[in-house]
Amino acid sequence: MGAVLQITDLSAGYGPLRVLHEINFTVDRGERLAIVGLNGHGKTTLFRAITHLVGWQRGSILFDGVEIGGQRSLGEGRRTPGIVRLGVAMTPQGDAIFPGLTVRQHLDCGAWSRRAWKERAKRREMIFELFPPLRKLENTTVGTLSGGERRMVSVGRALMTEARLYLIDEPSLGLAPVISQRVIAALREIDVQDGAIIIAEQNVSLLDGQVDRMIGMHAGRLRGDVGHVELG
């Protein structure tokens, strides 16, 4: 079996700027992990290094025993689709939405695998169960939606396929408290099965009781593995 994700000595940054400093951590199967820390301490960079969207990186990233890391200073984003197709689903900061597509087309974009594409109607239904407000917005252009609705669409897109590792970056960023609680609650509903989910968040109180483990992040290094948190 082994871990879903095993990261060894991962450093990453942009140009001359080094953001991550030799990070080591492991995520086990079925685990819900939160990485907490303030703005600008490397949570997003960590996620972007896992999906090869960062400027440069080095160090090993083992995903289900497959090496997806390595040393690289060019080709930002070149391997991203391949990594996604291995089973990594990421909701990036700022949502990376397609402003001119409708909610429905958007969700279809997330269904990249052959099986997910065949079952896309069923899976859309599942997303609408998870985020009821999206149901009546099905044919609305995403560019006209509010921040909270966009976040739901973005998370929904990541849930359309059978991923084994979900990376959710700042689910509460820029949202009203009520809405961010709903998004976090929906994340709680995700069935990770033999995969895992990692949430990056700065509002620790929101995560209370929603995750198995928390790791602090400070100045590009992991600090203080909180260990098991009692589930609510």
Binding site: G77, P81, V84, P92, F98
Partner: peptide
Amino acid sequence: NPEGAALSG
């Protein structure tokens, strides 16, 4: 959105 597309495989 090229980045969103890459993240959708």
